[in-house]
Design a protein around this nucleic acid. Structure first.
Length: 587
DNA sequence: GCCGTTTTCGGCCCGACTGTTTTCAGTCG
């Protein structure tokens, strides 16, 4: 069993324990271990073989044993017993807002509720409202929660959520009472998908701000309305929370609600070790922990998040890095990378035109790239095996190459257009186009668009074989996932990273908001092996070139610097990178 | 279940909001 599947098993144990009413800290230990495994940079098998698993923070002897058993046998007696002791539908109940382990247990013990459907029936019969600790309102809320779950119960692409959030943030900033406002949460951390929107506003007087927020158009329901916090549900299903705080508390609140939870826990522990208690309201002396009095910094000392980090002996940690993945240790050692910025990018090379399945012509794409001030624009239409996408055969591709060269000659565009292709990697590991034709191009993006269901070994062999071809400059959307729609195909990503490093093939960070592939969690490993990243919008229309911005966020989450990203290079150097393998192969 | 520059036991981040209470538990982020 791989680390991802094991993480899921641990997560399941945590949920089961929660319903059983176990010690919440024990529950948390399982959750922490699950997240640790998900974000593991080393190969789990290696860690186990070398006996280093129990040295990983948050994994002690009991968890080491269970993880090893899962890894070795693919199952765990402890988990099987837990499952057997409980109705399987109970776990889903935790997904309904307002229900936690305790209430689920009561519903199960008193009413025999063991699924969402039986909860609905119990609510409709009015039985739930009669339970101690429940009431009419709770019952109605649960019914509403079940209905909402069916209509809106999913996450949203970062790009879509951002588009909803921006006007709200602008509106907040435009209010006379509001001194400062920011969005927080996973949107600010630029996670690839977002569950809800968080806004923090600084104002002396909260009421008018709350009033504005809860009476905007497009609100389906106001789910909470307090003096410092309100929640609304928007058309389209996104939930949005607003916190209004006095200006002096803004940096603390912004930091707190930006998260992540793991990051906050780690930072608060760090504060406690210094005799300080950190909350969204500020710093105070930690009670009963320090014998000698601790000097608490006066409130005016913390105006920004930078000030807060500095007080705790850290350099500023950008929001994208706050995932509890070693950022605090790196900040302490002044070892955080200088992250890629949007303005570092000079162009991108995986874009489509009407020649295959794009919606805009070559000229229109070039004009759009001019508008954006790009130095280079690569066209990589589909190859013929992608029949559904009107892929190009050798003849049509060569005609496109000629058209691109002509357009460059004509000098009507500032941007230099590069001629490439997104060549299909066929199921047998061969390329869809002949070497002869590939040799005519400025670069080749190699992508998989078929045969997704192979097992991991076969798929990995297929990819490694494709990377052998010296014309290949870039492996496109390496894992093939479609966020919220389709899982990645099964692929040994570390092996692909190794191979890319050896052969000098770059890996794409596909910036299309539905893909964001390769996943940001892999990039630190990839960069440490010397693999270069190329961020590409995979634009199928002119406006899609702007997706590059989404890729910048992912690159930053992956700790990438400008030097790790190929398309920060000036054109001659960029081209040299793309063609280096081909040139070496000729000798 | 994890962890330790006070600790191998006794903590584990912390506060708002809601609904059900008459002083608080549960949930959430």
């Amino acid at each position: 069993m791989d680390s991802k599947a094991i993480a899921e098993a641990l997560e399941e144990i945590a949920l089961l324990l929660e319903i059983k009413g176990e010690n919440p800290f024990k529950v948390r230990a399982y959750q922490t271990a699950a997240r640790t495994l998900e974000n593991l940079e080393e190969d789990l098998g290696v860690l186990i073989d070398e006996g280093r698993l129990s040295a990983v923070k948050g994994i002690g002897s009991a968890l080491t044993q269970k993880i090893e058993e899962l890894h070795r046998t693919g199952s765990l007696d402890y988990l099987d017993e837990l499952r057997a002791s409980m109705a399987p539908g109970l776990m889903q109940l935790l997904e309904i807002p307002g229900l936690g382990g305790k209430k689920v247990k009561v519903l199960h013990d008193k009413l025999g509720v063991d699924s969402i459907e039986s909860l609905r029936r119990a609510c409709e019969a009015g039985d739930v409202a009669k339970l101690a600790g429940f009431g009419e309102k709770t019952q109605a809320k649960l019914l509403q929660g079940i209905a909402n779950r069916e209509a809106y119960g999913k996450r949203h692409l970062w790009w879509d959520a951002f588009a909803v959030a921006e006007p709200i943030l602008e509106g907040l900033r435009g209010l006379p009472e509001v001194v400062r406002a920011e969005h927080a949460g996973s949107l600010r951390r630029r996670l690839e998908t977002v569950g809800d929107l968080d806004f923090i506003a600084a104002a002396e007087e909260a009421e008018p701000v709350m009033e504005w927020f809860t009476s905007r158009p497009g609100i389906l329901e106001v789910t909470a309305r307090g003096s410092t916090k309100s929640s609304i549900r928007l058309e389209g299903g996104l939930q949005a929370d607003l916190r209004v705080v006095p200006p002096a508390q803004f940096p603390f609140a912004l930091h707190h609600f930006t998260g992540s939870k793991d990051h906050n826990v780690a930072l608060r522990q760090r504060a406690l070790a210094r005799g300080l208690s950190l909350s969204e309201w500020g710093l105070s002396p930690a009670e009963g922990r320090e014998k000698r009095p601790v000097k608490v910094p006066p409130p005016g000392d913390v105006q920004t998040e930078e000030d807060l980090f500095r007080l705790l002996g850290l350099t500023h940690i950008p929001p994208e890095l706050r995932e509890g993945m070693g950022e605090i240790e790196a900040a302490e050692a002044n070892d955080l990378p200088e992250l890629l910025r949007a303005e570092d990018l000079r162009g991108a090379i995986h874009n489509h035109t009407t020649a295959s399945d794009g919606r805009n012509t070559l000229e229109e794409m070039a004009a759009a790239a001019d508008e954006l001030g790009w130095d280079y624009l690569g066209i990589a239409d589909h190859s013929k095996a992608s029949f559904q996408a009107n892929g190009l055969d050798e003849k049509r591709l060569l005609r496109q190459v000629a058209a691109i060269r002509e357009l460059n000659e004509a000098g009507t565009h500032r941007v230099r257009i590069l001629a490439g292709v997104e060549c299909d990697l066929l199921s047998d590991g061969s390329l869809d186009l002949s070497d002869e034709v590939l040799g005519e191009l400025d670069y080749v993006v190699l992508s998989i668009h078929s045969g997704f269901s192979m097992d991991e070994a076969a798929m990995t062999r297929r990819v490694l074989q494709g990377l052998e071809n010296p014309h290949v400059s870039l492996l496109g959307h390496p894992t093939g996932r479609l966020l919220l729609q389709r899982e990645s195909y099964r692929l040994d990503v570390p092996a692909v990273i190794e191979a890319a490093a050896e052969r000098g093939v770059a890996l794409e960070l596909n910036a299309n908001p539905r893909r964001l592939d390769l996943d940001w969690r892999w990039w630190r490993t990839a960069a440490s092996k010397g693999v270069k990243c190329c961020i590409c919008p995979d634009a199928h229309h002119a406006a899609g070139l702007a997706y590059l911005e989404a890729g910048v966020g992912m690159a930053r989450k992956g700790w990438l610097r400008a030097a790790d990203v190929l398309n920060t290079r000036p054109l001659p150097e960029f081209l040299e990178h793309l063609q280096a393998r081909r040139k070496r192969a000729r000798w």
